[in-house]
Design a binder for these strands. Structure first.
Lengths: 349, 349
DNA sequence: TGTTAGCACTCGTTTTGATGGAGTGCTAAT
DNA sequence: ATTAGCACTCCATCAAAACGAGTGCTAACA
C-alpha cells in the first residue's frame, strides 16, 4: 500500500535523499538532489516534492532551514523497496575465518568480534537455545557423598552439567540402573517431548529412587529453559562513538549499558527466534525494536543454526543511518559460516 | 623513606589537598586549604608550602593559575600513610546479598554487578583459576561413535567437560577400565602434581588405549591452563562517564574497549594472583598498572578464595580520584562474602 | 626568621556579538 | 508544470570581551 502513495519521481527523489544521507550523514538539501539525480529538475521543483514527502512522513527537517533526513518510515521504505535493487559486490568484504574450536562459547565470541570489526557496529551473538534439540546422552555419576553429577549431552554436542545433592549414599548398581533407565527412556527426545507420561514411566522404573529422577528432570528443564541461560556475546560496543548521532555521552552510555545487560538484548532477539521459522533477516528501525534505549538505532538480526535444532541469533546494532546492504551481506556470510558448523569435519572453515 | 621528607605541617596540608580533591574533583587552591585546616595559616603561607610540595612531586598544577591536584606520588602517599588513619563506619554500605546459585558464573557476574552498583566504578571479577585445586572425579563416557565425553570435577565442585574424538569404537569394558585407572591414579592430585612419572604410569596401565589417555591429559592441562580460560566478568563500565576526567569520548571509549577485551584485564590481575599469597588488597595508581589505557585510572584488587585453592580476583577500576576507603571496604566485604562460599551450606548467605 | 597582606599577572571559562552559509518557502515569470 | 529570484530563518563558527580563580612575588610585620 505504501508504495502507491509515491509516484515514480517522488520515489527517485526519496531514494536519492536517503542514499545521500547514508553516505554523508548530513541533512541533504534540494540543490544537492537537483544535481544528483538524472531527473534534471531545478532545486525549486525538488523543494516542492520534498515538501510533499515531508507531509507524507518519509522525511523530516531537523530544523527550519536545514536539509531533510529520512524518517523511520523513510528508512523502512528504503529497506523494503529501494535497497534490494542494487546488486553489490561481496568480494570487498573481509572473509570470516572462524577457527573451529571445541568451545562453542569461544566460537560465538569470536563471531561477534569479527562481525564487529567488519561492520564497525556493535554486535551480539546469542548462544543457541535448546529449542527442538534432541537429547543424546545422559550420565549420572556419584562424585562425592551427598553429591551426584548429572551430565547431559544433546545433538550438536552441547554439554551441560549440574551437581545434584542427594540425601543418602547410593551404590554403584543403582547408579548404573538409573543411567540405563534415563538413557533408554529419554534419548532421542527433545525437551518438548518429555511429557507427564514419560515422567511417570521414568519414576516408576526408578522405584525407590524416583526422587533422584525428579531432581534430574528438574535440572533438565531448568538447564534447557532459555530464560536462565541465554548467553549473549557482544563486541564492538564502543563503535557507537563513531557515529555522532549516538556518540554523545548520554546516549552512548545508555546503549553500552544495554549491551552490558545481556538479558535485555536476549529478549530483543528471542522473539524473532521463536516467532519465525524462516531464516530471513530482520530489520528493526528505531522504535520498531522493543528496547527503548535503541530508539535512535537500527537493529538487524539473523538466525543461525549450528546444528539441527540448535539455533541462535546474530545481530548488529548501529545508527539508523547504517549501511544496511553491507550489514545484511555480512550477516548472511556469517550465518553461512556458522550454519551447521558443529556437524562439519574438524578444522578450518 | 618518603615520609621523612615531609614535616608534620606539609603532611597535613597534603592530606587536606587530597581529601578536598577527592571530594570535589576540582583543583584546590591555597585559600581553600587556609580555611579547611586547623592550622590557621594564611593562604600566602599555604602557597609557599604548596610550592614546596609541588617541587617534591606530590602535587601538580594543571596549568598556571589553577589550584593543585595530587600527583601519582601524592596518591600513593595518601594510600600508604594518610588514609588508614581514619576509622570509617561500614554500616552505611549496602550489604552484599549474594544468592547462592549453582552456577559459579552467575555468582561471579552477580558479584561484579553488585560491586559496581555499590561503588559507582567499573568492576571486574575473574573466574577462579585451578591453581592448586585438586581433582576429585574424572569420567569418560562413550557418547557417540567416534566421540568420548570427558567430565572433570575438582574440589569446590567446578565441573569441566570436553568432547574428545576417537578413531575406533570402544567397548564398555574398556571404558570402565579407563575410568578406574584415571580415577585411581589422578584423584586427589592437583594439576601441578601430575608429572611425567604419573603420565607414564597411566599410559602403561591403559595399554592399547594409551592414546586416549593422552588425549584426556591434554584436555586436562588445556582446561586448567589459565590463559585459555580465565573468564572475566565485568560490570558498570559505563560508570566511567560519571567522572569528567575519564568521560571524554576518547578515553572512555578506550577504557570500555579494554573491559571488552577481557583477556587484557585478566593479565592485569593474574600477576597478583600468582605473586602474592597474601590476601591483601592491591592498589595500582596510574602507570603502576600494566595496562596502558589505564594510566589515568586507579585499580584496586583483592583475591578471593571460593574454596580451597580455588582463587580468583575481584577488582575495581575508577579515576585516580576515587574513594579509596570506600572501595577497599567494599572489596573486603565482598571478599568475605565470597570466601569459602562453595563450601558453605546451600541457601542465602 | 617565619608569617602575612597586597598586588600584578596568568590562564581557562563563559558570554556576547558579528558574520557567513546553507537551505527553505513563496511569488511571479516562463 | 516548472523555474528563477528573493527574503528570511537558523545554525555554526569565530573573535573579542568580561570574568574569576589562583598564583608568585615583594614588602611589611611580629
Amino acid at each position: 500500500m505504501d508504495e502507491f502513495e509515491l509516484d515514480d519521481r517522488k520515489t527517485k527523489i526519496l531514494n536519492a535523499i536517503i542514499r545521500n544521507y547514508l553516505k554523508t550523514g548530513e541533512p541533504v538539501g534540494s540543490r544537492t538532489i537537483s544535481k544528483y539525480t538524472d531527473l534534471n529538475l531545478s532545486s525549486a521543483t525538488i523543494r516542492n516534492e520534498m515538501a510533499d514527502l515531508e507531509e507524507l512522513g518519509y522525511i523530516v527537517q531537523p530544523h527550519t532551514s536545514a536539509g531533510r533526513i529520512p524518517s523511520d518510515k523513510g528508512y523502512r521504505f528504503y529497506v523494503d523497496h529501494l535497497m534490494a535493487e542494487k546488486d553489490r559486490e561481496v568480494d570487498e568484504m573481509k572473509q570470516f575465518v572462524i577457527e573451529h574450536t571445541e568451545k562453542v562459547e569461544h566460537l560465538l565470541q569470536q563471531a561477534a568480534k569479527i562481525l564487529a570489526s567488519n561492520t564497525n557496529y556493535a554486535t551480539m551473538v546469542t548462544a543457541p537455545s535448546y529449542q527442538g534439540n534432541k537429547l543424546k546422552f545422559i550420565q549420572l555419576s556419584y562424585v562425592d557423598e551427598g553429591q551426584i553429577l548429572a551430565v547431559i549431552v544433546t545433538d550438536g554436542n552441547l554439554v551441560k552439567n549440574k551437581i545434584i545433592p542427594v540425601s543418602g549414599p547410593i551404590d554403584n548398581e543403582t547408579m548404573l540402573k538409573l543411567n540405563i533407565v534415563l538413557n533408554s527412556t529419554l534419548n532421542g527426545l527433545t525437551l518438548e517431548e518429555i511429557n507427564l507420561g514419560t515422567i511417570a514411566r521414568l519414576k516408576e522404573q526408578a522405584g525407590i529412587h524416583s526422587d533422584i529422577i525428579g531432581e534430574v528432570l528438574d535440572t533438565l528443564s531448568q538447564m534447557m529453559l532459555q530464560e536462565d541461560d541465554i548467553r549473549v556475546y557482544t563486541s564492538g560496543t564502543t563503535n557507537f562513538f563513531k557515529y555522532p548521532e549516538l556518540s554523545d555521552t548520554g546516549k552512548a552510555s545508555e546503549l553500552i549499558s544495554t549491551f552490558e545487560e545481556k538479558q535485555q538484548l536476549a529478549s530483543l532477539v528471542t522473539e524473532n527466534l521463536l516467532d519465525e521459522n524462516s531464516t530471513g533477516i530482520q530489520v528493526y528501525i528505531g522504535n520498531e525494536s522493543s528496547i527503548q534505549t535503541m530508539k535512535d538505532c537500527s537493529v538487524v538480526t539473523a538466525v543461525y543454526e549450528l546444528g539441527e535444532g540448535v539455533r541462535g541469533t546474530i545481530g548488529i546494532v548501529g545508527p539508523k543511518r547504517m549501511d544496511y546492504e553491507k550489514v545484511m551481506d555480512n550477516l548472511k556470510v556469517l550465518k553461512n559460516s556458522l550454519d551447521g558448523i558443529l556437524n562439519k569435519p574438524k578444522g578450518k572453515t
